[in-house]
Design a protein around this nucleic acid. Sequence first.
DNA 1: CTGAAAGCGCTTACAG
DNA 2: CTGAAAGCGCTTACAG
Lengths: 346, 346
Amino acid sequence: VETFAKSSDYGILESTARTEGRPVSRKTTIKDIAAKVGVGIGTVSRALNGNPNVKQSTRDAILRVANELNYIPNAAARMLVTNSQSETTIGLLVPVVENQFFFELIKWIHTELKASSFNIMIFNTDHGQEPVIHHIIEQRLGGVLILGDPPLSSEERDVLEIHRVPYLYIDHHEDYANFVTFDNKKGGKLAAQYLADKGCRKIVLVGLNDQSQQQIDRFYGFMEAVPAEGGIQVSELCIPNESKSYEMSRILLNDRKIDGIFYFSDTMAYGGIQAKLEMGSSVSIVGYDDIFPSKFMKLSTVRQSAQTLGRTAADGIVRLVRQSASDDGVAKIQTILTPELVDRQS
Amino acid sequence: VETFAKSSDYGILESTARTEGRPVSRKTTIKDIAAKVGVGIGTVSRALNGNPNVKQSTRDAILRVANELNYIPNAAARMLVTNSQSETTIGLLVPVVENQFFFELIKWIHTELKASSFNIMIFNTDHGQEPVIHHIIEQRLGGVLILGDPPLSSEERDVLEIHRVPYLYIDHHEDYANFVTFDNKKGGKLAAQYLADKGCRKIVLVGLNDQSQQQIDRFYGFMEAVPAEGGIQVSELCIPNESKSYEMSRILLNDRKIDGIFYFSDTMAYGGIQAKLEMGSSVSIVGYDDIFPSKFMKLSTVRQSAQTLGRTAADGIVRLVRQSASDDGVAKIQTILTPELVDRQS
DNA sequence: CTGAAAGCGCTTACAG
DNA sequence: CTGAAAGCGCTTACAG
């Protein structure tokens, strides 16, 4: 009996179930509120959802009690009945997040989506995309942004399409799908023109990752733009990973004939800049991305603005999600952005 | 009649409801599977969940049909009945994500959490934390990581505690709560010692943000460590925002007597390095953070490893979530990491 | 091994 | 304006 006499001492924990005398907090439900106010659960639901057909005094009482009891609705229950795609959340599929460019991208996607009051759920695709796709559908997310290769398999696409979850590739061109990407071929071209303009005759391409379609496109763009008549000599150098760029660049610069280097990413180019400075070389260097340190490193580079790409993509998926919700026609989003060269005399 | 005769043409869309002759896809449920296989829904549920008490042939049939029908379970329904905190997802509260250090941090948190197969849901707290907290509880997330100031209000803490959602501050010390942070005072001390060791007599502190408790701690640590007897002169310079650092540094370096500068973040220090190089100054510069470009910029700085901080924090929240799930004792997590000085002779 | 039934917390016609 | 009831998709004792 004493246990019950003291029950009001629990204060905010008042609505608790007791097992073996120990108070165990149970979450407040509309049932609890209904009981305490003395109305039906339907009325509680209406009051809480701002339905106008509720007497003011009833509404006030319900709101007050809900607050007292620290009521917070159960999203799962609501979703179950409304069958709402939890359309305010969109999934972001990211492979290995080692890449500074991806980070700036995510930042802008985030900024833009929050402006449309969407939330982001990040999924890692290192262990394959299929389990992730299932998870996204289980959670009834509104849409998916897909960063980086590899593209979805046709089974994965089918799953998304059957379940009407719109998806958009970022920085990856795929004819059948929605995407926002930069023109990598054009970017490669810009790099080639830059080095040609500097009068380079013996050029090395460093760090091409042949798993990356983007980088392959840059490569072809570069090669196409090399003036045929100039007698320019182009060779390629693979490096095991980005952090080895400095050492490899030093070796490269021992060959005094080399007068131009194109690095397939800014991060690698930094090692080149460093080696160049230390060795007093006059080689021309151009990178790719224009991530934020490049300004300080005074690196000439092909800028693909993470801001533009991120915002455009975020914008796109929001449009797709809304379209899909309203069941309107499904206009494809296929945007190709143009990179530009930033000349910092490196 | 023809409509029905053609129904098999729909292939994967076979399980569709038709409204006014137009096929509208409806998501497959266990009911659909049960009907098609000719068993009860309970059996379907058991088979799908790997319950061993199901005859092999029944299980096979169910799995096959589930697959045919592209069945994916409804997470909301399952959560409703199991009342499982969706404990595989943890929320990450982030203010303005403009800060490179935060980015590296998020990356490591992500890496570590994915290893424990948790997912991350990022919430932006620019418009206040309360709505976000509610959202987290509605979604029944397993736990929350809180990045950056300001700390939660006591109401917000109450809400989390009542609903048993563990939370952990990152890079923010708060006596009553779980946190993982760096010793900022110690960091300030290291910076002071560095400049003193270089023989600096006239030092400027640049870019202190007095809204940031961390930076204030660094400031006090710095001031305490300045040798009393050396006659060292310390002054402060505010700059409106990080990108103005270069211009301000140039102005600063016009005063040839200044021989030491402590920048409260690496990003600002880059502007200083640039100005120093251009003006041929011999001033000593030290930064704070050691984000990735600092190595290339050859900036001496106080390293607080985003990797260590991120991993430790991720680890901590995972422990807290598991603890809270198993209802064990609730050991507080209060970890203070020690920064170190990286001397790059800047 | 399996089916029928209860119930998770909520919303929403429906009938007053 | 309000209550009682049905139902969202699933899990899980319970009784065969």
